[in-house]
Amino acid sequence: GPMASDKRPRTAFTAEQLQRLKAEFQTNRYLTEQRRQSLAQELGLNESQIKIWFQNKRAK
């Protein structure tokens, strides 16, 4: 629909990254900035991508 703007492409996470994020989520529903930074480095992701993933996951 018209609401779907092309400005922010959805990140396609790899299965491996998703597995890691899910495991982290089961341990911590809320990430500290430090955890998020190390996860971002570990997974080669953007911190904001991880932050948003957690927000979306909590919203469900």
Rank of each mutant, 00 (worst) to 15 (best):
Q26E: 13
E42H: 03
K51C: 13
R20P: 00
L21G: 00
K60N: 07
E16M: 09
R10E: 15
N56D: 11
E47C: 04
N56C: 13
R29N: 14
A12L: 13
K51N: 14
W53D: 01
K60I: 11
L39M: 04
A15T: 13
T27I: 12
N46E: 12
G44H: 05
N28V: 03
L31I: 07
Q49W: 09
N28K: 05
T14S: 06
L18Y: 07
A23N: 09
Q55L: 06
Q17G: 02
M3A: 15
L18Q: 07
S38H: 08
R36W: 06
T32V: 03
T14R: 04
R10I: 14
E33G: 08
L45W: 01
L39W: 01
N46R: 10
K7Q: 14
A40Y: 01
D6K: 04
T27N: 11
Q17V: 06
T11G: 13
N28S: 08
E24S: 03
M3Q: 15
K22A: 10
W53S: 01
S48V: 12
R8K: 15
Q26D: 07
I52M: 12
A59G: 08
R35F: 05
T32K: 04
L45Y: 01
K60R: 10
Q41M: 10
Q19N: 11
T14W: 02
A59M: 11
F54M: 03
Y30G: 05
R36C: 14
F54I: 02
R10G: 15
L21M: 04
K57L: 08
N28H: 07
K51V: 12
E16I: 07
F54V: 02
R8L: 15
T14F: 02
T27F: 10
F25R: 03
Q41L: 11
N46D: 13
E47V: 10
P2D: 15
Q19P: 01
A12S: 09
R20T: 05
Q17L: 04
Q17N: 03
Q17C: 03
Q26W: 06
A40F: 01
Q19F: 07
Q19V: 12
Q55H: 10
A59E: 08
S5Q: 07
T11H: 08
T32A: 04
Q19A: 14
K22L: 14
P2R: 14
T11Y: 11
L43D: 00
Q49D: 15
Q26V: 08
F54Y: 05
Q17I: 08
R35G: 06
P2V: 04
R20S: 05
S38P: 01
A40P: 01
I52H: 10
S5F: 00
S48A: 11
T32H: 04
A59V: 08
N46I: 06
L45Q: 01
L21I: 03
Q55G: 05
P9T: 06
Q19W: 06
M3T: 15
E16W: 07
Q41V: 12
S38I: 12
D6V: 04
Q17Y: 01
S5C: 15
K22V: 13
E42F: 03
G44T: 04
Q26R: 12
S38N: 11
N56Y: 13
M3N: 15
K22F: 08
L43H: 01
A40E: 03
L45P: 00
N28G: 06
Q19R: 10
R8W: 15
P9A: 07
T11A: 09
A40W: 01
K51Q: 13
L45T: 04
R58A: 09
T32E: 05
T32M: 03
Q49Y: 13
R29A: 10
N56P: 02
R36P: 02
L18K: 06
I52N: 11
L31A: 04
M3G: 15
T14E: 02
N56G: 07
E47Y: 03
E33H: 11
Q37N: 08
P9K: 07
L21D: 00
A23S: 10
K51R: 10
P2Q: 15
R58M: 08
N56S: 10
P2T: 05
L43R: 00
S48I: 12
K22G: 09
I50E: 00
K57F: 08
Q34N: 09
E47K: 04
A40L: 01
T14H: 03
R35P: 02
R35W: 04
A4L: 13
R35D: 07
R36G: 14
F13I: 07
Q41H: 08
D6E: 06
R20W: 03
L31Q: 03
Q41R: 12
N56M: 11
Q49K: 06
A59I: 11
F54S: 00
R35H: 10
Q41T: 09
T32F: 02
Y30F: 09
G44C: 06
L21V: 01
G44L: 05
L45N: 00
R58N: 10
L31N: 02
Q55Y: 13
M3F: 02
R58K: 04
K22T: 14
R35Y: 07
Q26I: 10
L45I: 10
K60P: 05
A40K: 02
E16P: 05
S48N: 07
D6I: 04
R10Y: 07
L31F: 03
Q17H: 04
E33C: 09
L31S: 02
T27L: 12
L45C: 10
E24P: 00
